[in-house]
Write a protein that binds this DNA or RNA. Sequence first.
DNA 1: CGGGACTCCTGCCAGC
DNA 2: TGCTGGCAGGAGTCCC
Length: 293
Amino acid sequence: MPELPEVETVRRGLAPALEGCRIRLATQRRANLRYPLPDRFAERLTGRLVERLDRRAKYILARLDSGEVLLIHLGMSGRFTIHPPEGGEAAPGQFHHATPESGAGTGKHDHIIFDMEDGTRIVYSDHRRFGFMDLIVEADLDANPHLASLGPEPLGNEFSAFTLSERLRGRRAPIKAALLDQRTVAGLGNIYVCEALFRAGISPNRSAASVAGPQRSERLARAIREVLNEALAAGGSTLRDYAHTDGELGYFQHSFAVYDREGDACSKPGCGGTVKRIVQSGRSTFYCPRCQK
DNA sequence: CGGGACTCCTGCCAGC
DNA sequence: TGCTGGCAGGAGTCCC
């Protein structure tokens, strides 16, 4: 689920339940996710006020009144569900709005539980456990290894054709691999890299360096911003009164032009090509060999 | 250093 | 129906 648009959607969904709210009780049901949880993880969260919820790349950052930041990465399968108090009403904008049921948070893969002061229960579950959480002193945040080497936010002001070009120059790796590298641009994953390259008409096999010129880098930078913005809009628009807990977010998956569409006719008007699947550094790439050059 | 292969973990689905 | 292999939205580590 989680590339930038999904993580931002999750952040927005969690915000009403967390921002300005105090954690009455945090519970960890195992000692590790992808990595060991920090010492006394649950105790350090219990009683804390969540002052603000931010996002950087694919990370969610919960700033706490203790001066620490709870860093959250959803990995491949990390999910939050929000369970309003019995008899309570879901705030507008909440997602994964589960019907209040005792037993929420007791599933096999429910690893972390936040019981908020107002009775809302927030459950983090992650069946593959590629996600992780950490607690970091706020002053040390920028130096944190997870965050320190991240490239620019693609929807932020510092991202442009020029900054993209600078980060592609001289790199011999395929552009597909370079874009998955979070040091190039932060927040892209397999889906949106495929989609952005399709929109830009750039072959995933082309070397990163060969995309560093002004024309291609401009097209690619624009395509990245476009696809992320559209996905964000699709995710956000369907989150309101979203009533499932199956982890599906938004409906942008119906708008994929190439991702998971092997064998389909290319959607570019007049192209006539067929979407192909190849494997690059162990991961599927979908593209149209006809119009992506 | 850059880049590619491998790794972690579990679930699901197609194919036999 | 049941088993097997392949694949899944990520990214750190190791090795050349």
